[in-house]
């Protein structure tokens, strides 16, 4: 039996966009992005695709990418397919808009995983780079009753178990858990592979499966957001920087040391 893997991937505002372009509309409590900055697949989710493909490189496996949102840039969301994933499922509904939180997002994604049935492994990014919640995957694990390991930098499947190198504050630990399991991965997993030309060609021919809220079996109570957003603002920065000058860069370095001594910092 091939190992059946789902990757949960979110479309986000490019986190590397110039800071000067970052604006918040406090009225609608939303981030305004200039149309010139295209969205991207959340970086850690590309790591998740890579982790799934590494498993597929060494054993028989299928990789299904699932994403939930209101609107998608299809060329962006097809990137995992061009890297080598088999299928793309988009949960797309205007109802998945502004009033939805990590709790509801996890309910929708868990419902899709349940509907597609038979997954051994669900691989996710450690957090979405927009809301930085780091909650959805852990929620999916709880909802589905799967084992759960977060912050992986290496993921393997052996003898019905998932084996993960999990990052800790002073190194890493090797953790095993029985399948089915949810695993989140971090950038320490390494650079995701680039799409090949063949992959890109194959991806253009693949059509995503699209489901709306009505296609998913979620109880009404579970669609009630658990959190309310009361305000969203850009914090003020008030730091005044003193530029230390010198005859040349080396001298400026010496002056810096004197300055820090004067300020009793060294």
């Amino acid at each position: 039996m091939p190992i059946k893997i789902a990757v949960l991937a979110k479309q986000v505002i490019d986190p590397e966009m110039p800071m000067a372009a970052f604006r918040v509309d406090s009225e609608s409590k939303k981030v305004d992005t200039p149309a010139t900055i295209p969205p991207v697949v959340n970086g850690f989710d590309e790591n998740a695709v890579e982790a799934a493909l590494q498993i597929k490189d060494s054993q028989e496996a299928t990789v299904t990418v699932i994403s939930s949102g209101t609107e998608f840039a299809l060329d962006v969301m097809k990137k995992p397919l061009s890297m080598g994933a088999d299928e793309l499922v988009l949960l797309q509904d205007q109802a998945f808009g502004n009033t939805i939180d990590s709790f509801v997002t996890a309910q929708l994604l868990a419902a899709a995983v349940r509907k597609l049935d038979g997954f051994d492994l669900v691989i996710c990014g450690r957090q979405a780079s927009d809301w930085d919640n780091a909650q959805v995957p852990l929620g999916v694990a709880e909802i589905l009753g799967f084992s759960c390991i977060s912050l992986g930098k290496k993921v393997e499947v052996k003898d019905g178990k998932v084996v993960v190198e999990r990052i800790t504050s002073d190194g890493y630990e090797v953790v095993e858990a029985p399948l089915p399991a949810v695993v989140t991965v971090s950038n320490e997993l390494g650079q995701p592979r680039y799409p090949t030309l063949r992959g890109i060609m194959a991806a253009t021919r693949k059509l995503p499966t699209i489901w709306t809220a009505a296609d998913l079996d979620v109880e009404t109570d579970q669609l009630q957001p658990r959190l309310s957003l009361l305000d969203l603002f850009v914090p003020e920065r008030i730091q005044q920087c003193e530029i230390i000058e010198g005859e040349d860069a080396a001298d400026a370095g010496r002056q810096l040391a004197l300055k820090l001594r004067e300020a009793k910092l060294i």
């Binding site: 986190p15 970052f22 981030v31 959190l227 009361l230 969203l232 603002f233």
Partner: peptide
């Protein structure tokens, strides 16, 4: 949120 570019004030329902 947004990598520290913004701050959200949230309450629990």
């Amino acid at each position: 949120v947004y990598g520290g570019n913004a701050v959200a004030v949230v309450s629990c329902n």
